[in-house]
Amino acid sequence: MEYVSPIDERVRQPEPLAQPTATIEGKTVALLDISKNRGAEFLDRLELHLHDRGAKTIRFRKPTFSRPAPAELIEEIALHGDLAVEGLAD
């Protein structure tokens, strides 16, 4: 029996992950605050640790945790950061 599938069956290839960097010293780490309650406090602490290890940091904030980041913001992060850190909301 043949059916009409309710699912988009196309197989999408995942984007390849960037290669991990050997060192963060001298690198610019983009820290993305996803606007989740107290997330910025966590990033404040993380930023101190990154500075201790010789990394520079740059902070970004997305408007709300409940939506994907706007494309322009992702482009900004890619343009200015060598690495990026972001959290996942619940």
Binding site: Y3, V4, S5, P6, I7, D8
Partner: peptide, 17 residues
Amino acid sequence: PGMGEATLARVAACAVL
């Protein structure tokens, strides 16, 4: 969240289901 394309055929399949 999976970004499947909602063609009318797929929406109709969901309505049948």
